[in-house]
Design a protein around this nucleic acid. Structure first.
Lengths: 177, 177
DNA sequence: TTTGACTCTATACACGACTACAGGGTTTAT
DNA sequence: ATAAACCCTGTAGTCGTGTATAGAGTCAAA
């Protein structure tokens, strides 16, 4: 990401590019990173994860990307923004490449995600109410001595021992995704 | 957690409750786990993390807990339910033990958490709207050939390139906590 | 005495999406 | 020719909250 303004140019020349029709431009990984806003390590990570396919290489082993990768990366970013996990995105891409139309599946995933989201938001609403109520009550509660914190100890939870109401970190992790 | 019905009893008598006097009842870790609903490994993990102090031990090295631990665990659970991280809980307990009243701090943390929560929920609302809108639009969009998924590609995000709008897994992780 | 339930410590694994580093090789500018 | 900036692979670490396993010791009952 430091990448000085080397700007070696998108050479318009690229005859030794490769197999069939060469694209006009080819970029090194740093340039792709610059152009896409995705870190170099992340790009290699995506490749390892099977999201990008295997790019062409120079003789010395440098990855050479054509412009198509920027589309692909934009797709990935957009899908992420829509809440898809990299696993899901990979599956969608794979399906698309095997000729299947992934769109029905995408629709299904989004529908599912929407339901999850609603559930999580209901959970958060409950949690928020709890928290706000607690804060109000605390304005009336005195400090009990000999306890860790009278405030929390005095707080009655609506569903205290039930795991289902508990917003545990693991669950928090899943909110929105 | 399998723990057969050993049930060595919670004696109902607890007058010698105080710090210097030995408690009447003492429980092994499995009993504490049963009584608190917290797994044995989690109990040891809490101890390692500094949330429980060091319990007494039998000659053979078994942890022996007195009833106080159940209060403490209830406190931890409650605080967790309110969205405190174990780190925060540890801090509160430490403060309480050093004589400081943690309650102001707790109040402050809760206030902060409430604000965070509101922000996160606004974010999720935006995200939800986005998702729902997307789904609707997709009912009208045809399938563009030659793309991974026209649906996602055709989707315009309100704030697409901005990280601030992106519900990335890292951010998701922080929602509610 | 033997069995089985329980406990101990220490270590590794799990999740998701990266990020950091070590230890090299390559390219470009001066 | 040299040095800076870039690239490579492979491995390990990050975040939080636990869970799982191995290998060994302890306790109570049949």
């Amino acid at each position: 990401m430091r990448l000085k303004a080397t700007k070696t140019a998108n050479t318009e020349n690229d005859d030794d590019f490769g197999r069939a029709m060469a694209r006009r431009t080819s970029m090194k990984i740093g340039e792709v990173s610059q152009a896409s806003g995705i870190g170099i390590e992340a790009l290699r990570f995506y490749e390892r994860s099977g999201l990008l396919g295997t790019p062409a290489r120079t003789n010395s082993g440098y990855r050479m990307y054509d412009e198509g990768v920027l589309e692909r990366l934009a797709f990935i970013k957009k899908a992420q923004t829509l809440g898809f996990s990299l696993e899901e995105i990979k599956k969608i891409i794979r399906d698309a490449q095997s000729g299947a139309s992934p769109c029905d599946e995408v629709r299904e995933i989004v529908r599912l995600r929407l339901e999850e989201l609603d559930e999580k938001m209901r959970e958060m609403q409950r949690y928020r109410r709890e928290l706000a109520k607690t804060l109000e009550e605390w304005d009336e509660v005195g400090r009990a001595p000999g306890h860790v914190c009278g405030l929390i100890e005095a707080t009655e939870m609506e569903n205290s021992p039930s795991d289902s109401s508990k917003i545990s970190p693991k669950k928090r992790q899943k909110i929105g995704g």
